[in-house]
Design a protein around this nucleic acid. Structure first.
Lengths: 332, 332
DNA sequence: CTGAAAGCGCTAACAA
DNA sequence: TTGTTAGCGCTTTCAG
């Protein structure tokens, strides 16, 4: 691998000059510029990012630690995050925590080692120790998929509790009084917890309730959702709120397979608005979250903050209830 | 940020010694070891990966460049790739090419800049110039999702042509003679091309054919697939082969919505075996590809090759036809 | 078993 | 406008 000094020798200039034309910084004559550029071409010179990072104390990378990639909505968010980062000249370093807080902690340390300029995290539930390390290392981070005024971290996301108000309102307006919920696994997952809390809170505000016996937590899997379905639906249940679209697919498919009419007998709602949701029949009533905007916003804010040497701020995003065909008036 | 010499000062040793205990290399007394370790703890010392990479000429990272993350099967493969890399102490650098060969070329150069120890690419269609740069830089790479004996790159994947033989055989055995295909967009995509070629080749071997008028290329989208469906199904078509599961979902949903019985009137097959496919009704007949094994194998092979300073070899994986409910005997 | 010192490839003053 | 030089933080001979 040719280095900067190989280029310098070939172009008959100093390494400092090579650096200047490569980074288009400072002033140099057109002649020198040409010679350096053609030397670079001739040698297939590629600058060494490690050496550059060491000298600059900036890596030009953004990190992201997510629970899993096997969840379309995270994949979509990261896709947008990477796209925005790439457009601004940054490279993505991605790690998967497998929903494990300890592992996440270790990965955060690794990100500090790697010298990422900014870090995307999911949710607001993180080990305090890890957050302190980030602060100590001066690595900016944003927590996505959540929005909490109280959070000590910058948030780029929506309030998961509030995002459920709209679905509860919608259902109650349709006359539903016996509502059950199939939520995501809430352990170590503030988004799932908040969605349950939001449903419960809103129902109670309306004089209704969500007893523990009316909520099950299920894996992000259509098969698991189908299995759980029978246990949660009681004779008087007229509506089922699902913590995400995949769980809703399972509920819908299972309802159909046991001959339970949707929405005539049972209304079902999802969360995420995956692209398939509008195509099913009946089409799924769900909550749109804007994963793409979230990922893009997170990247841009992180980069702006780094380059201007200012702290990252939060931005609240909002979800939107998309009423389609899986919800209807409650049967009597 | 504390550096190695801060730790050295605090522990009353040289930086060389700190390096030795951090990397657990060479020999040192238990006493020194203790002192260094507690100095590291006290200071929250984190080694600098850039400096380390510069000195070692090894980064401890693996790169991956994929067409998109908005495709469940790539997301699954990368998830496995990252998991295996993480388990072996490597960090993932991920970039998305958006199916653009030029962009992929630039991203490959960026990966060289980053000093990745190994690189995962998708398919066998890459700019020659980029491949040469990889070679010149001594960066090992594997091409996944494809297997071609002729390829000059190491392959970890399956033969897309051959993988279609099984579905053609299955359909022909069921009596189908008029078969159409909804393929993925073939431009700059050897996997999509090869799947079309495989279907055509096998049909011709059996005295049948796949005229150009019987194949459409559609985006990876249920909505687009639904739109294309009507144009490709002719009155005598009894079976439809889809280039991936998402396209098949669109075909299935559209068939159902226009009252076309599956598989009685039309048989449909997919490709990928996404987890939803077994849950639909009728459940989708499809081709299982083992994305997880592929990602894991790619990471392990790359790392083994790097650490043993040997070239990476290819490994051929095999797909498996999963017969479910969307295929049946051809109507007369 | 441990320390001193050179060097990985690049950038940033400071001179010229 | 350009070159010289001193690091950035780490590893690795080579001495001791």
């Amino acid at each position: 691998m040719p280095t900067q000094s190989d280029v310098a020798a070939r172009a008959g200039v100093s390494t400092a000059t090579v650096s200047r034309v490569v980074n288009n910084t400072g002033i140099f004559s057109a002649d020198v510029r040409e010679r350096v550029l053609s030397a670079i071409q001739d040698l297939n010179y590629v600058p060494d990012a490690s050496a550059r990072a060491l000298a600059l104390q900036r890596s030009g990378t953004l990190g992201a630690i997510i629970p899993t990639l096997n969840n379309a909505i995270f994949a979509e968010g990261i896709n947008a995050f990477e796209k925005a980062a790439q457009a601004l000249g940054y490279t993505l370093i991605l790690s998967v925590s497998q929903q494990d807080p300890e592992r996440e902690h270790d990965l955060i340390i690794k990100m500090i080692e790697r010298g990422v300029d900014g870090l995307l995290l999911v949710g607001n539930l993180h080990k305090q120790a890890a957050l302190e390390r980030l602060e100590q290392a001066g690595v900016r981070h944003v927590c996505t998929w959540a929005f909490d005024e109280q959070s000590r971290s910058a948030n780029v996301g929506f309030d998961n509790r509030e995002s459920m108000y709209g679905v509860v309102d919608h259902l109650v307006d349709l006359g539903h009084r016996h509502i059950a919920m199939m939520a995501g696994i809430a352990q170590d997952n503030d988004r799932a917890k908040d969605r349950i809390a939001g449903v419960r809170e809103r129902l109670e505000n309306k004089g209704l309730s969500l007893p523990a016996s009316s909520v099950v937590e299920v894996e992000y899997s259509v098969a698991d959702s189908r299995k759980a379905f029978q246990h949660i639906i009681k004779p008087d249940t007229t509506a089922l709120i699902c913590g995400n679209d995949v769980i809703a697919y399972g509920a819908l498919l299972e309802a159909q397979s046991i001959g339970l009419a949707v929405p005539e007998h049972l209304s079902i709602t999802g969360f995420d608005d995956l692209s398939l949701s509008s195509q099913l029949s009946p089409a799924l009533t769900t909550v749109q979250v804007g994963a793409e905007v979230m990922g893009e916003t997170a990247a841009k804010k992180l980069i702006t903050a780094v380059e201007n040497e200012e702290p990252v701020g939060s931005t609240q995003l909002h979800t939107r209830l998309i009423v389609r065909e899986t919800t209807g008036t409650a049967r009597q």
